[in-house]
Amino acid sequence: MAKKSRPTPPPPKKRGWQQIEAPGMPQVVSDRMMRRMVIFCGLPTLLGLLAFPSSYLLLQQGLKVPVVAVVGVTLGCFGLGIVGLSYGILSTCWDAERQGHWLGWQELRINWGRMRANSKANRNNAPT
């Protein structure tokens, strides 16, 4: 018996060198979010990764650093990285035509309100 071959789906339509965007988040908003996440999450995480080598260098110079302080600084930096990840997403302007403020306090309040309203609506519509 011969196997039946399935038809392959057509390739996505292209516009020049770009693919046509599917409905959802615009690429400019996604890029903006990524930049903010790298800044607000990447920098504290990098500092957390540098805490151990820095403490080793200080130890080599004769300065005794308590282990608890090194662990505390590392965990604090990693915690800031996690908070920064959420802040990077929520402080981004989700409007493709508007850039928003560089710190994003206004956008954070707007997006937090949207998220809470959506959560409340989903909770009210959930089957019981």
Score class of each variant (00 low, 15 high):
P12G: 03
G24R: 04
Y56C: 02
A2S: 11
A22C: 01
N125V: 00
E21V: 05
W102F: 11
L85T: 14
E97N: 13
I82Y: 15
W112A: 15
L49S: 05
P66Y: 12
W17D: 02
V68G: 06
D31W: 11
P44Q: 03
V71T: 10
L59S: 15
C93T: 04
P26L: 02
A96L: 01
L58E: 12
V38H: 04
A96P: 03
E107N: 05
A2V: 12
L63H: 14
G16K: 05
S55F: 11
P26I: 04
N122C: 07
T92L: 04
R116S: 05
P11S: 07
W102K: 03
G104R: 02
A22F: 09
R123P: 00
S55I: 07
D31H: 12
V70A: 04
A22P: 02
S5E: 10
L46V: 10
V67H: 07
Q18C: 03
A121Y: 09
Q99K: 13
P11E: 11
W105C: 02
I39A: 06
M33V: 14
A22T: 06
P44A: 04
D31A: 12
V29W: 06
Q18V: 03
L85I: 02
V65G: 05
M115T: 07
S55A: 15
G113Y: 03
R98G: 01
V73S: 03
W17S: 05
Q106C: 02
V65N: 00
Q19I: 11
A121M: 13
K14C: 00
A96Q: 14
M25I: 15
V67F: 12
S55T: 14
R6K: 11
N122D: 12
H101L: 01
C41H: 14
F52I: 15
L43M: 14
S91K: 09
G81F: 06
V38E: 05
V70F: 01
N124E: 14
Q106A: 12
L90R: 10
P127D: 04
N124D: 14
I82C: 08
L50Q: 07
T92D: 04
L63N: 10
L49C: 07
P66I: 06
V68C: 02
K13Q: 12
V68T: 12
S54H: 08
H101I: 01
G48W: 06
D31C: 07
M34W: 08
L47K: 03
L108K: 02
G79N: 04
S5K: 08
L75H: 07
S91Q: 06
V65I: 15
W112V: 10
N122W: 08
I89L: 08
L49M: 06
A69V: 13
P66T: 09
N122F: 03
T92Q: 08
P9V: 07
K120C: 00
D31S: 13
R114S: 04
L75E: 04
P23W: 10
M115A: 10
I82E: 07
Q106T: 11
K14H: 06
K64N: 13
G72W: 11
Y56V: 15
L58H: 12
L75S: 10
A126P: 02
L50Y: 08
K14A: 06
K14N: 03
V71F: 09
W94A: 01
L50P: 00
R15I: 09
R6L: 02
V28K: 09
V38R: 05
T92V: 11
I20P: 00
L58P: 10
R109F: 13
A51D: 01
L80T: 08
V73N: 00
L47N: 12
A126L: 09
I89A: 05
P53I: 12
